[in-house]
Computed example of a mutant assay.
Amino acid sequence: MGKDYWPAIAMVLVQLGFAGMNVVSKLALDAGMSPYVLTSYRNLIAAAFIAPLALIFERRSGMTMITKKVLLQIFFSSIFGATLNQVLYFVGLKTTTPTVACALSNTLPALTFIMAAALKMEAWRPNTPAGQAKVVGTVVCVGGSMIMPFYKGPLLKVWASPIHWRFAEHTSAAPAAAAGGHAAVLGDILIIGSCVAWAVWFIIQSKMSSEGFSAPYTSTTIMCLMAGVQCGGISAAMDRSVAVWKLGFDIRLYSVLYIGIVGSGIAFALMSWCIQVRGPLYVSMFSPLLLVVVAIVGWGILGEKIHVGSAIGSALIVAGLYMVLWGKGREEMDGPAFDDDEEAAMGAGLNKKQGTATTASNDRGAIISLPVIGPATTAPKHDATRNGNN
């Protein structure tokens, strides 16, 4: 039973990594680094980091599964999940604050749920408590994330951080003060656009899994290589100066190493695996935790103050997250029983067409259920999780 917790643990670690990425990337951008160069380095470093994992764990199966169709899907994954998502996010982050960027990123669960439900990849039974919990939980998560940037309230009396980083405070002070007006609004719009691209990536990954492709390290390596080339082309088109690519022993070098290894390499591999095991909505619903972690990191490292609005928003985010996870878990437990009852009723009314009725019931279940892929689509969830770990 302990293996059921590995996807949740993996996604919490991913959000912790993303929180650090928001801080160091914002500092690098404020220090004058080009967002296009930042994303290009990020993906190239990620590809170099993941490639050995692909050779170790997927050398026998990874490349044999790469067909023209899969390669095309990886190409679109690189466009939406890496290039568009990262370029839009970092360009937007340059003119807004990490807190607002994280808050707007929490529209991701709602976008993913809408897309997955529209494509019939996510189960939604509005007349059941589980279906209602997923909808209400999504609304609560998004609502909580909107409170934090737009309502501050009085300061909470908390102790001063013992690890306050003066360098980070001085580096980001001037650009944060200069950002505002139309530039800040444009930055917010770009952040939302990055969330749309991110949600599309979740759907593409789930589609690849449902068609039997289960080599996350190989696909992530290829995707990052493609994205690195794409971002490099965008950078060359926007700024032809070679000087923008230079890295010294400063925040620029540290930021590209961190976001390349942690923010892309480890995070993409873990998310690809979790999507195969639990589906796109499960993965996207952990994104609200990022805002909570960033608030804590901002207090601990940047010396930011914690307001009542942040505390209320964080509580709503966590509550909404658990509502959706409860609803999804309840549907996974009730789904097989529901399908068995429906199949039995159909079999009682159509004894002479039992095979046809059973096939129709299974087809309908495949449409409304989120795909969980292992070596075989009919494998139990524990087997799928175990094979995913291999």
Rank of each mutant, 00 (worst) to 15 (best):
P380Q: 02
A168Y: 13
L316A: 13
P154M: 08
A197D: 03
A267H: 01
M208K: 07
K328C: 08
E211C: 12
N387T: 00
K381Y: 02
I368N: 13
H382G: 03
G335Q: 10
G327I: 02
W165C: 14
A243I: 08
E169P: 01
A101Y: 11
E58N: 00
K157R: 03
G355Y: 14
N106W: 06
T359D: 02
V277Y: 00
I367T: 02
W159S: 14
V294Q: 12
G233I: 08
G193F: 14
M226D: 02
Q15M: 14
A197E: 05
W6T: 06
I147M: 13
N127D: 03
G180P: 12
A8H: 12
I301H: 13
A384F: 07
G279F: 06
P7D: 04
D30Q: 13
A311W: 11
L53Y: 11
T83V: 08
T138N: 07
S272H: 03
G62L: 09
L72C: 11
F76N: 00
K352Q: 06
W201M: 03
G232P: 05
Q354S: 10
L53I: 12
L16Y: 11
G62V: 00
G365I: 00
V256N: 02
G131K: 03
Y282I: 04
L281I: 09
I312G: 11
E169F: 12
M285A: 10
L290E: 15
Y322A: 01
L350F: 14
S61I: 11
C102E: 05
